[in-house]
Amino acid sequence: GAYRMKIYDRDELRGQMSELTDDCISVQDRFHLTEIHSLNVLEGSWILYEMPNYRGRQYLLRPGEYRRFLDWGAPNAKVGSLRRVMD
């Protein structure tokens, strides 16, 4: 299947937008971000990790809009890595 997600540095799907279609071992290295404040999962399911290298707390992201970090259940906006959930 296809995988696509848009990430934003501000809440409510605002601010600088970056797009992912594959795994990202370090959000900071690739996008120069340490925080993601909202996101829109367009295709596929993903796991968001608090730390790089797929470590730390993890949150399942199904397709849909997440307008603030509380929407995916996190206590803050800190994001380290993102990985696709393969079928």
Rank of each mutant, 00 (worst) to 15 (best):
L39K: 00
E35Q: 07
V27H: 03
N76S: 12
G56S: 01
E35F: 11
G44A: 02
M86R: 14
D87W: 02
A74N: 02
K6A: 11
T21S: 10
G1N: 14
A77R: 09
I47V: 08
Y3I: 15
R10V: 12
E35H: 10
L13A: 15
L39Y: 03
L39P: 00
Y8E: 00
L20A: 14
V27C: 11
R10D: 15
S38R: 03
G73H: 12
D22P: 01
R57N: 07
V41P: 01
L42R: 12
R57W: 03
G64M: 03
F31N: 15
I36D: 02
D71W: 08
Y8N: 06
V85M: 15
Y49S: 02
L70N: 09
L60Y: 14
Y49H: 01
D9M: 14
R4A: 06
T34L: 08
R67C: 07
L60M: 13
A77Y: 06
P75W: 05
D22G: 07
L39T: 04
I36Q: 02
V41L: 13
L70H: 14
R55P: 01
G1M: 13
M5S: 09
Q58Y: 03
L61K: 01
A2I: 15
R4P: 00
I47W: 13
Y3H: 07
G44E: 02
E50N: 04
H32C: 11
R84Q: 12
R10F: 13
L39E: 00
W72K: 00
R68D: 07
S45Y: 06
N40F: 12
I25S: 13
N40S: 11
V41M: 02
F69G: 14
I47E: 08
E50Q: 04
D87R: 03
C24L: 11
L70M: 13
G80S: 03
Y49P: 01
M51Y: 10
S26W: 14
Y59F: 14
Y59E: 07
R30P: 04
E35N: 10
D9Q: 08
R83V: 09
P63E: 08
H37C: 05
L42S: 11
R10W: 12
R84P: 15
V27L: 12
G73D: 14
L20C: 11
F31M: 10
A74K: 02
S26F: 06
R14Y: 10
L61M: 06
L70W: 06
R68E: 14
D23T: 03
V41A: 07
L20D: 01
N76K: 11
R84S: 07
Q58E: 14
L48H: 00
A77F: 15
Y3S: 13
L33C: 11
R14S: 12
H37T: 13
S45V: 10
H37L: 05
P52E: 13
R67P: 05
L42D: 11
L42H: 15
D22H: 09
W72Y: 15
G56P: 01
R67V: 07
D11R: 08
F69L: 05
D22V: 06
G1A: 13
M5Y: 00
S81G: 02
D29Y: 09
W72E: 01
R68Q: 10
I47L: 07
P52G: 04
R57C: 05
V79K: 00
W46E: 02
M5V: 09
V85Y: 12
V27M: 09
E50W: 00
E50V: 01
P52R: 05
K78G: 06
D87C: 04
R14A: 10
S18R: 10
P63I: 05
E35V: 05
E35I: 07
H32G: 12
R10A: 08
N76L: 14
V79E: 01
R83L: 05
V27R: 01
G44K: 05
P75S: 09
G56R: 02
R30T: 07
N40R: 11
Y66W: 10
V85S: 13
K6E: 12
G80C: 13
I25W: 12
R57T: 05
Q16T: 07
L60N: 15
P52S: 10
S38Y: 02
I25V: 12
L61H: 01
L60I: 12
G56T: 00
R55M: 12
L13Y: 14
E35R: 08
R14N: 10
L13E: 14
Y3R: 12
S81A: 03
Q58D: 13
D22E: 10
G73R: 11
D23R: 00
D29K: 14
A77E: 08
G15Q: 10
S18Q: 11
G80T: 00
D71Q: 04
E65L: 12
L82W: 12
D71H: 04
A77K: 06
W46K: 02
L82V: 08
G15I: 04
D23K: 01
E12L: 08
D11T: 11
M17K: 13
Q28H: 10
L82C: 05
S38Q: 01
S81P: 01
Q16A: 06
Y3V: 14
S38G: 04
G80P: 00
E65M: 13
L82K: 03
E43I: 03
S26Y: 13
Q16R: 08
D29W: 08
M51D: 06
G56Y: 00
H37N: 11
T34S: 08
E50T: 07
Y49T: 02
M51Q: 12
E35L: 04
H37Y: 09
S18N: 10
A74H: 08
G80F: 00
